[in-house]
């Protein structure tokens, strides 16, 4: 345990390694949350800078990823509130093209009907995620995009595990409802 904490602390001391290991995740989470590549880049940079500056406060009671995500969650919340923009409700004005990302289907071997259905489902999930509350969206993205477990999400968001479950449950209900409507 002590060795793990010392290793974690040394990882944080090396900003280059920290950025190299976690940049993609932090940027992806910020992009999925804000839907703006410029804002996501700023948030990711601020996240690593804050993490580096406050590295002495890291006690190793959670993983570095959870710690970084916690900083990112706070930054994203502050950013969205400061700008007073509701990115997810303004798909047309956002930098990420919702139509384009909904068209992304990896399996080329699928039939045209299956691909069309998958596209509809994908668009429905994107739209449903856009309609979620800030907390629901955060836990939804951390769980189903970043593959974090409930305890990690609790550590990253500062919520209790039960609260995480509740937000996740409501988010899933909303997504399922939207998928059902799209069919």
């Amino acid at each position: 345990m002590i060795a793990a904490v010392e290793r974690s602390a040394s990882e944080i001391d090396d900003l280059d390694t920290l950025v190299h290991l976690y940049w993609t995740r932090v940027f992806r989470f910020a992009l999925a949350s804000l839907r703006d590549p410029d804002a996501a880049g700023s948030v990711a940079q601020d996240c690593f800078l804050r993490a580096y500056r406050s590295r002495e406060q890291f006690r190793g009671d959670c993983s570095i990823q959870s710690w970084l995500m916690r900083i990112a969650v706070n930054l994203i919340r502050d950013y969205a509130r400061n700008r007073r923009l509701q990115f997810w409700k303004r798909a047309s004005a956002s930098a990420v093209d919702l139509e384009a990302v909904s068209q992304w289907i990896p399996d080329d071997d699928a039939s045209p009907e299956s691909r069309a259905m998958a596209r509809e489902q994908l668009a429905a999930v994107w739209k449903a995620a856009g309609g979620l509350s800030e907390r629901q969206r955060t836990v939804f993205l951390l769980r189903f995009v970043e593959d974090m477990d409930l305890l990690e999400i609790a550590a990253a968001t500062g919520m209790k595990e039960g609260t995480v479950k509740l937000h996740l449950f409501r988010a899933l209900q909303a997504v399922r409802e939207r998928i059902g409507r799209s069919q």
Partner: peptide, 24 residues
Amino acid sequence: ALALFRGSVRHCSGRQSRSEPSDI
């Protein structure tokens, strides 16, 4: 549907992501 969404976000993020060295 959730796996598609995950893949879509990752694909989108991969395209939009800045090159790491300049960010570092």
